[in-house]
């Protein structure tokens, strides 16, 4: 009984979320349209000013390495963190022994 109740609860929750998501998707600016709100001064400058600003023809590179280089610094820090975390997880923790 409790199991079915739980199932029903999850189902209702999923249906509600699903409906909400559906409405949200429908409401989003239409895919691929030229009138989308993302085409504002921000992307304008990235597209038209990248060469002047940074000297890079590839706009993605310009963003990653110049406009938003601070993010990229943290991107490398994420990698560094993951490396240290992997090391601390695997190395030197072996002595807890193989249980098998």
């Amino acid at each position: 009984m409790g199991k079915y109740l739980r199932l029903a609860f999850i189902l209702i929750l999923a249906l509600l979320t699903g409906y909400g998501v559906l409405v949200t998707v429908a409401e989003l600016p239409p895919y691929g349209a030229d009138t989308n709100l993302t085409y504002n001064q921000v992307s304008e400058r990235y597209i038209n000013g990248a060469l002047e600003d940074t000297g890079v023809p590839n706009m993605v590179t310009a963003i990653v390495l110049d406009y938003r280089a601070y993010d990229t610094m943290f991107e490398t820090i994420v990698l560094f963190t993951a490396v240290i975390a992997v090391l601390i997880t695997l190395k030197g923790a072996q002595e807890e022994g193989d249980r098998k």
Partner: peptide, 27 residues
């Protein structure tokens, strides 16, 4: 987006700190 990246570094380092403890429970 910077918040997202910071949050990710924080998450990984938090989990790393937890798993620094010896023993399987921490892992």
């Amino acid at each position: 987006f910077n918040i997202f990246v910071l949050v990710e570094v924080a998450t990984i380092s938090c989990c790393g700190l937890v798993s620094a403890r010896r023993g399987p429970n921490a892992a």
